[in-house]
Structures are given as C-alpha cells and as structure tokens.
Computed example of a mutant assay.
Amino acid sequence: MSTDFDLYDYLLIGHGLAGALLARELRGRGYRVLVYDEPRPDTASRVAAGLMNPVAGKRFALTWRALDTLPYAVAYYRNLEQELEADFLVETPILKVFGSAQEQQQMVARAATEPWAGFVAAIDTAPIEQAGLLAPYGGAWLRGGGYVRVAELLAALAQQGRAEGWLREETFQWEALVSGAADVSYAPGQVRARQVVCCQGAAALQCPYFAWLPLTPNQGEVLNVEVPGLTATQALNRGAYVVPDGPGRFRVGATYRWPPFEPAGSAEGEAELTARLTGLTPLPYQVLGLRRGVRPAVRDRRPLLGHHPALPWLSICGGFGSKGVSLAPRLAALLADHLGGQSELWPEVDVARYNKLYLADLLENKPPARAFG
C-alpha cells in the first residue's frame, strides 16, 4: 500500500453519540483516531431529548444495568462539560405520573420488594398539587437521572474535531476500503488504519459487512412545544416524556414507528404526542415544530459491540435504541478497553451472540446490504 497514506490506529465511521464517545475514549488512551461523519438531521442522536430514566415501562422495571451505567454516565458528562467548558447535563427529578389507580397500586406493590436500588426517591399516592400538572393518582419521584442536551454536546465535540483535525464531515464509502496484511486502506481519504469501527446507528444497515445483524430502523418523533406556566423543575413521564428545553419550552416524545415510516408532513405523530401532552397538563400550548429521527433497534434490545466474526480489522459500536444517552459512556469505555485487549465485553452486548446469523447469511448468499427509510 502507498506510503503516502496517513496511518491511524482507528478509523471510526459515524459521529453520533456512540461514535463521538468511543472516539474520545480511544483518543484518551493515546490512539490516533480519525472519524468520518455525514451530518444528517434525522439521526437519533441529533433528535433525541436525551432523557436518562432509571425506571421505565408499564412494569416499572429498573432499566438494564442501571447501577453500572447511570452513575457512570452522570460522572462522565460532568467531566466532559469541564473539558469542553460547556453545560450539557441537567440532573433533575423525573416524575413518573400514574395514569390510573391500578397503575398506582402496581407501583406500591413493587415498592414492598425495593427493586429499584435507590433510584425511586418517593411515591405519592395522593393527587400531586402542582400548577399546570394533571396527576390525580399521584406518581413516583425518580432520582439519579436527568437529561443531556445531546445536539449541543455533539456540536461542541465536532467543533473540537474539526479544529484538531480528527473529524472529516463527508460521506464514507464502504466499498472503497481495501484490506491488507496489517491494515486497511481508504483511497478517497488517502488514509490507512489498523482497525475500522462502524458507529453509524441505523445507517449501519447500509454497511455491507454488517447487513446480517438483526438491526431494524425505528422512527421516533419529538415535538417541540411552548407551555407557559408549566414547571420546569422536573421532567415528566406518563406514556411520553416532557423534558424542559428553555424558559416555557419543552420537548415531548417519543413515538415508536416501524417501517414504512411516516412521510414528511404527516400530522399523525403530532396528533399522538399532543394527546399525550394534554394527558399531563390542562394548560394551553403552542407547537413549535416536530422532528423525526431513526433509531437503531436490535431484536433483544441490547447494543451491538465487538469484532466482526470474519474480519479481524472490523468492529461495530451501535444498536443503542432509545437508551444511548444512558448507555453510551460506559459501553464506549468498555469497548475501547476491549479493542485494546484489556477487558472482555459483557456477553449481553457482544456482537458474537449473533454469529449464527452471519453464518446463515453466508449459506443463503443474501444481498450484502439493506437500505432504510
């Protein structure tokens, strides 16, 4: 291969939250890293409201590996704020509003076994009297979470990447990669790398090397609204989240849609989200806009990390779904250590759990890539 090519330890494809934090982890370990990213307005990271919720779902279950990931994420984002001299993380209570007496009773019953490891601060069974809030059955106050302004965080890291030269904002062409004995070359960029990591989120479906993974695009819609008089001292959750986004402004989300997706201009998402908002507040509101993003959803709802089963120079970091803000800091560090030979991956996230699908694709001679949208 040409000696005129610049040599990197890691070539990362994608600068959403997963790719951005993995790049930071690898650079922090002294590796030479180059990131390719095609900025898109519909990526999950750029649309997400960034909520970190320790207890979720109708079963009021503690989120997966909450003790391993949430405290780590809070400390991580605080350190990142200091490094970039900016504010991204808002640690705030989350009020999970009960939608019925039955829901309230289920939460109280579960409290008897204390399954939440301290993340539930209190349970109110009486109506919560708070200006602008509809909570006749009370609610549960959650702590240890909050929300991250993900778009601002990524913009600050991208600015750093452009200034320091480790980020190239252009389309990456997978078909232009050529593997050699010790590294791979990418002629359009005049670069070589010892390792390549796919961090493209749902766009990983278009990577010909990972088309066999059970990764499905899932569209989420987030509504930006103005609700004068609604308190911003906590985030709200009841079938939807309501996250503060400036004085009198909030983000309401999110929908979950499988392909085919709602087309641009469709009012269905707005109608669904405004209905959820009016279930939480009687106050008048103004819709400021709606954004759609595409999440990378995995069959077993666990991220995908680790080496390709047949290509030793290739890895993946993705499949975070709607939990990227909570999971990405800890898992980026875990993968960086793993790539450096310093740790094993958690079995639940190791891409090797799907190697049988890769072998099945080889036997069936399936097409090399899939599109989404």
Rank of each mutant, 00 (worst) to 15 (best):
L95D: 00
V35I: 07
K366W: 11
E164I: 08
V150N: 03
Y31S: 13
G321T: 02
R194P: 03
R302Q: 15
G139M: 06
L215E: 03
G165N: 11
T274F: 07
L236K: 02
V97Q: 00
L283Y: 05
Y77L: 03
L177P: 01
G165M: 09
D37G: 02
P263V: 11
V33K: 00
S2T: 14
E262S: 15
G139R: 05
L327M: 13
G321K: 02
Q206L: 06
S179Q: 15
E272V: 11
L327N: 03
L62N: 08
L223I: 05
F60Q: 10
S100N: 07
E348S: 13
G269V: 05
N355S: 14
R149M: 04
A126Q: 15
A101G: 14
R46A: 07
G14Q: 01
A156K: 06
L177I: 15
K366D: 11
N355M: 07
G189Q: 04
L304W: 12
P260C: 11
G30R: 04
A336P: 01
A271S: 12
E81R: 01
V148H: 02
G229A: 06
G19N: 04
V298N: 01
A151V: 06
L17P: 00
R24P: 00
V108M: 14
L177Q: 06
A235Q: 09
R302A: 04
A151R: 10
G145W: 02
K96D: 06
M1V: 11
Y241W: 15
Y186Q: 01
A203V: 05
L215A: 05
W346Q: 10
T125N: 09
V150A: 03
I123F: 09
L327P: 00
P284R: 11
V227P: 05
N218D: 09
A140E: 04
G132P: 12
A56T: 15
C198D: 12
L70I: 13
T43V: 02
P127M: 04
A131N: 13
Y72M: 06
L51V: 14
Q200P: 05
V227M: 07
V252Q: 01
P217R: 03
G269A: 15
L62Y: 07
N355C: 10
G321H: 03
Q159F: 00
E262T: 13
T3A: 15
E272H: 10
V351H: 02
E221T: 07
A181M: 12
